[in-house]
């Protein structure tokens, strides 16, 4: 690890300015991913600006949104009464990630900033366009069991590892950010993470120096609280990244699906919103929800999947996992 300057930020604008002027500077919050990457030699900041002391750790109700502070800890967020009551699927997703210790350290903003777990990205001896643009993709012709089946490019086939983000995608969250010139803006969750395209080094649409201040979830998504589920499939029972994960949430009104929100994790460079499946499920009468109709919605979504050499299983796994997540979300509402 190269030497770096460590400063504790007391002021948002000053912190943002430091990071926007020094391209080698980085924000430090929980540090659970950044320090890991620094020890691997993947991240080499010359300066760390510790933003964990900034006043973004509140979780509160604000008008028609629940606002989740960016420096609030993952564990505090998952256990917060407002989140449990209104967005239990978000609690589940957060709790599906990492370990209790890491959730006690990791922040919400940091969770969204997590970088891929692609082993070629992590090993500095391997080629990786994300880590070192132009060096090639080690995974493309390599061991790509854990890689993307949607939205990959010839430059990068990595997946986003965040569980929390998959739930936030399905909950129509909005990411609030603050920039160097104190400029604030809102980014729809679907626009926050990006596909790799020709610039896989960029995971998201933040500008240099921009800092996440909060993640806002509309209260309109709370209508799905009773019928939502986050399912994570992995190679061991806990403390492992997903092979495939599913966030499934439904609002049931008058015996039919008024709203359906579905997102997949670990299948793409970003959390994968399943518009096709949502469309086919919305408006369906509960009486018509059965294995066949759920399966049809899923199949429509997975038609465009493009598996690689070692991850063909993900298509079938996603198919089954989605149907299972739908059933768990819908519970007794549906006769399977």
């Amino acid at each position: 690890m190269r030497p770096f300057k460590y400063t504790r930020a007391t002021d948002v604008a000053a912190a943002a300015k430091t990071v926007s002027t020094n391209r080698e500077a980085a924000f430090l919050a929980g540090g659970t991913n950044l320090l890991d990457l620094m020890k691997e030699g993947v991240a080499k900041p010359s300066e760390l600006v510790d933003i964990s002391g900034l006043a973004f750790s509140k979780i509160r109700s604000s008008g028609n949104v629940i606002s989740i502070g960016s420096t609030a800890k993952n564990s505090d967020t998952a256990n917060h009464a407002l989140i449990r009551r209104n967005f239990p699927m978000l609690s589940q997703a957060i709790l599906a990630g990492a370990s209790a210790q890491i959730r006690n350290m990791a922040t919400n903003g940091g969770n969204l900033m997590q970088r891929t777990r692609c082993t070629y990205f992590y090993d500095v001896n391997m080629p990786c366009n994300k880590r070192e643009p132009g060096s090639g993709c080690g995974a493309m012709e390599g061991i790509n069991k854990g890689h993307a089946i949607f939205g990959w490019s010839d430059k990068c086939i990595a997946t986003n590892p965040s569980d929390m983000s998959v739930a936030l995608m399905a909950l129509d969250a909005v990411v609030k950010v603050s920039g160097a010139d104190k400029k604030q803006r809102s980014i729809a969750f679907a626009d926050f993470h990006r596909l790799p395209g020709d610039t896989p080094e960029k995971d998201n649409t933040l500008e240099p120096g921009e800092m996440i201040t909060s993640i806002d979830i509309p209260m309109s998504s709370a209508g799905m609280a009773a019928n939502s589920y986050y399912l994570k499939v992995r190679d061991r029972a806990s403390y492992a990244f997903a092979l495939v994960s599913v966030a499934a949430a439904f609002e049931i009104k008058g015996g039919s699906v008024a709203k359906a929100r579905v997102a997949l994790g670990s299948v793409s460079h970003k959390p994968w919103r399943c518009d096709q499946a949502e469309k086919l499920l919305t408006g369906k009468s509960l009486k018509d929800l059965n294995d066949a109709s759920l399966r049809a919605a899923v199949d429509a979504e997975l038609m465009d999947a493009k598996p690689l050499e070692h991850n063909g299983y993900k298509v079938e796994l996603a198919r089954r996992a989605m149907v299972l997540a739908f059933k768990r979300a819908l519970k007794s509402e549906v006769v399977a």
């Binding site: 082993t119 391997m126 390599g142 806990s238």
Partner: peptide
């Protein structure tokens, strides 16, 4: 798992080389 092109282990860490955890 060895990458058959280069002979490096792609399972270098406890995140990649899974041993059972308590819940298993």
């Amino acid at each position: 798992i060895l990458d058959p092109r280069w002979g490096n282990f792609v399972t270098r860490t406890f995140a990649d080389y899974h041993i059972p955890v308590n819940l298993d």
